[in-house]
Structures are given as C-alpha cells and as structure tokens.
C-alpha cells in the first residue's frame, strides 16, 4: 500500500505543479478529485469529532438544552424548501447576533485598548538615545498611520502630508512582512521537492 500511495502522492504533486505552466487536464483531474475528497473528509471528520460529542452525546446524557441548537440547525436546513426557507433566517440571526456581540468587545480590547496601552511610551528616555528615537518613531508612525485612515477629511495640506507619511509607514511594514514570509514559503517548496526527489525517487536522502 505504501509504495502505491507514494506513487499516487507524487503524481498528484506533479499534477498540481503543472498548473504553473498552464491550466491542463492533469491539473483539472487533481483539482476535481481534491475538491470531492476534501469535502467528504471534512464532513466525515466534523461528524465524528464535533457532531457526536457536541450534540449526540449531550442529548444522550440528558442535557436537553442542546435541543435548542439542534432546532436552530434544522431551521437552517429549511433553506432547501423555498416556501419555508425564510425560517433559516432565525438561525442565521442567532449566529450573526451572537458573534457580533462577541467580536465587539474582543476587537475593542485587543485592537483598541491593548494597542493604545502599548503605544503609551515615553518620548524621552534619559541616557538612551536609540530608545528615545525608537519610541518617537513608533508614536509618529502610529499617529500618521491613523491619519491615513481618516475618511471624513480630505488628504490635503499638512494633514495630507501626515497621511502620506502614514502610507509610507504602512508600505514599510508590508515590505517587512513580505520579506519575512519569503523564507518560510521557500521551505514549503523544498519540502515538496524533498518528497519528489527523496521519498519518491530516492535520489536524495
């Protein structure tokens, strides 16, 4: 089984790589198989690992408040019947409302309070020039970046200048993320090459 498996895996790997040249039947084959297999895998694993413990086991244990979730779940399925499909909005409303409330405080704290808290730093650190400069740059960068995100004021004059500085900071940061990611992406490719040349063909060990 293992040898056949490795051969199949290697051919599928080549099939996906062939997309880099152009779209072709080999890629289409891999793609359509991948969609079917992955959708099936996801359904099966979610059923056994989430549905059974979260719903079935709880109902068997007599925790009937889980029925409420099940009822909303069934309402969701009513979408398949056009006449009563509107009932699925109740389930949708529960999902959206609950998470909107949840995310409200989550974003307020982690994206608001915590960031402000981290940026409250002294602009002058006695006897430490590099930290003084660093702190100044952080405050100026955050400040000008926020100015860039102002929607109700035109980017003109001094305000526009600061907004421009802000976008420079943003681009610098994007470049940093970009450069930071390159290595990890290369290692993914090396991993695949290693599979083809090592595990499959045995050319490298």
């Amino acid at each position: 089984m293992e040898t056949i498996g490795i051969w199949i895996a290697a051919l599928l790997t080549l099939g996906i790589f062939s997309f880099l040249y152009k779209d072709n039947p080999f890629y289409k084959f891999c793609e359509s198989l991948f969609v079917g297999i992955s959708a099936g895998y996801w359904f099966v694993t979610t059923f056994w690992q989430v549905f059974m413990p979260k719903l079935a086991d709880n109902l068997i244990a007599g925790r009937f408040y889980y029925m409420i979730g099940a009822i909303f779940g069934v309402l969701m399925l009513l979408r398949l019947f056009p006449k009563i499909g509107w009932l699925s909005r109740w389930s949708l409303a529960l999902v959206v409302g609950t998470t909107a409330g949840l995310y409200f405080t989550r974003y307020l704290v982690s994206n608001g309070m915590v960031q402000v808290q981290n940026t409250i730093i002294p602009l002058y650190v006695k006897g430490n020039l590099s930290q003084t400069i660093g702190n100044l740059v952080i405050v100026i960068g955050t400040f000008s970046g926020l100015i860039y995100f102002f929607f109700s004021k035109e980017h003109k004059g001094a305000f526009g200048g600061l907004a421009k500085l802000g976008i420079w900071f943003l681009m610098l940061s994007f470049g940093a993320s970009f450069g930071y990611t390159v290595m990890s992406r290369m290692s993914l490719l090396i991993g695949r090459m290693d599979y083809l040349l090592g595990t499959w063909l045995g050319l490298i060990r």
Binding site: Y107, G112, G166, S173
Partner: peptide, 28 residues
C-alpha cells in the same frame, strides 16, 4: 521589524478595531 513596522501595524490594528466594532454595532 520592531520599530516602524510595529508602528504601522498598530495603526492598522486600531483602524480595524474601530471598523469592526462599528460594524458589529450596526449589525446589532
């Protein structure tokens, strides 16, 4: 990585925070 990058990220985070909270309120 630790200075200008951090500053820009904070600006984005704060902006996203305000946008997301405002959207959450509009939904609620």
């Amino acid at each position: 990585l630790t200075v200008p990058n951090m500053a820009a990220k904070r600006a984005i985070w704060i902006g996203v925070g305000l946008g997301a909270t405002a959207t959450a309120l509009k939904i609620i």
